[in-house]
Amino acid sequence: MPGSSCDVQSEAAAPMFCGWTQALGAGQSFFMPHDHHDDHPHALLPPDPALRVKALETILTEKGLIDPAALEEIIDTYQNRIGPQNGARVVARAWSDPDFKAALLADADPVLAELGLYGRQGEHMVVVENTAQQHNMVVCTLCSCYPWPLLGIPPGWYKSDAYRARAVREPRKVLAEFGVTLPESCAVRVWDSTAEVRYLVLPARPEGSESLGEEELAALVTRDSMIGTGLAKVPGEALA
């Protein structure tokens, strides 16, 4: 198997934060502007970090190091155009087309490139299939590496210390908190993403979906099912 992974039975990637006792680093102050009310004569003052971001943008723009239009384009892309619906299309296609699925599992990059689901933080993708014997779950213990072209920007919990530490240490417990309980006979494998390798879980095709077309199938594929903290919805299940 390419890339790094950690078997849940191993102790290798135990919590990375324990045993550290240093104080906080610099830059931790929390600037709180005084309360502003509607009757104030001036514009509402943004929070401190927002001003700091504006400062960086202005400096870099003035130096010609960035193009403000490109920033708008990036924000628009991730806010409006790229999201889990991309990954869902891939999963639905894999469920419907055995050759596509085989190619995807063997070497995802050319397959995804052909679909235009390539680039930015999706340069090297590995797709891992859930089976009756093995459930896969993805984490980034380092920070929040995530397949942007397929899933968009990660949810808050994916970036939290709690998930990043516990997904490796006690994956079954974490899965239970997401409402996923697996039989003991099903192993759980946790894949640790890096800046170089990103993972997409190919969830199991739900019972009762045999007659559905790709579009209907894609509607059953949730974001969490492609991270491995959920399962695909069964047909008829209310949209969550």
Partner: peptide, 19 residues
Amino acid sequence: EPVFAEPWHAQVFALTVHL
């Protein structure tokens, strides 16, 4: 949940990706 909870989250993200 929204993709970015605050506008500055989106801005600092985009700035980094662009750089």
